[in-house]
């Protein structure tokens, strides 16, 4: 599904990624681990086409992301859901409206939005909080709303960039359980994190990045630095 072929990415003189070769198959759950600044976020940005590699190729279903035109990029992004550490919910909209927003901007009809959003909120276990504003929810709940928003387009791939970075242990566990549930429903998930306890618990494929290079790959790995 996703292939990195000898990818090099630099920001001015700083090398963010180099010599990265990676293959992600459909339906996988991958933990991308490494310290802050190791290059995890850059790798995710390359997948959604927000950054382009200085050398090498990033292929999604055999299409080179660098060749996707600016006009087509939004359509690619509808196939990829993204979740962030800082959550990025619109504070003046309710949980329902935040999820609906993602569908509105893509031109879905009101009837479809009204039908789909409750189902997605139910999936993340927040249907009862549909009319709550972000300020009325806990950190974990907000992150689950953000995940619901990322799922609104029924993406084939979900990228989670430190989704538990600002959450306590209980909330982190909730978010992780949710990501595993989404993965079990068929969506490929890439989780970038430095939370060792989470990674160790789930026993899935782990890719470790250090200073822009992949230094370790384990099929059912542990977090090791």
């Amino acid at each position: 599904m996703i292939k990195f072929q000898n990818v090099l990415k630099k920001y001015d003189d700083v090398t963010a990624l180099q010599g990265v070769n990676l293959q992600v198959r459909h339906g996988e759950f991958i933990s991308l681990v490494g310290m802050s600044g190791a290059g995890k976020s850059t790798l995710l940005k390359l997948i959604i086409g927000e950054e382009h590699p200085d050398d090498g190729q990033v292929l999604i279903d055999d299409i080179d992301i660098a060749t996707v035109s600016k006009t087509d990029l939004p359509y690619l992004r509808r196939k990829i859901g993204m979740v962030f550490q800082d959550i990025k919910l619109l504070p003046k909209r309710t949980a329902f409206e935040n999820v609906a927003f993602a569908m509105e901007v893509c031109g879905h009809k009101k009837e479809k939005i009204n039908g789909d959003v409750p189902k997605i909120l139910d999936l993340v276990g927040l249907l009862h909080k549909r009319n709550h504003f972000p300020s009325q929810m806990s950190g974990g709940e907000k992150q689950r709303v953000a995940i619901a928003r990322a799922l609104a387009h029924r993406p084939v791939l979900l990228l989670a960039d430190e989704p538990t970075g600002n959450l306590d242990e209980v909330n982190s566990d909730e978010v992780l359980e949710l990501l595993l549930k989404i993965n079990s429903l068929g969506t490929t998930v890439i989780l970038a994190t430095h939370a060792s306890s989470l990674v160790n618990r789930i026993k899935r494929r782990v890719i470790t990045i250090e200073s822009g290079k992949i230094v370790r790959e384990q099929a059912q790995g542990n977090y090791q630095l």
Partner: peptide, 8 residues
């Protein structure tokens, strides 16, 4: 957010 969720 619009950009992230794929608005043209």
């Amino acid at each position: 957010i619009m950009r992230l969720v794929g608005a043209t």
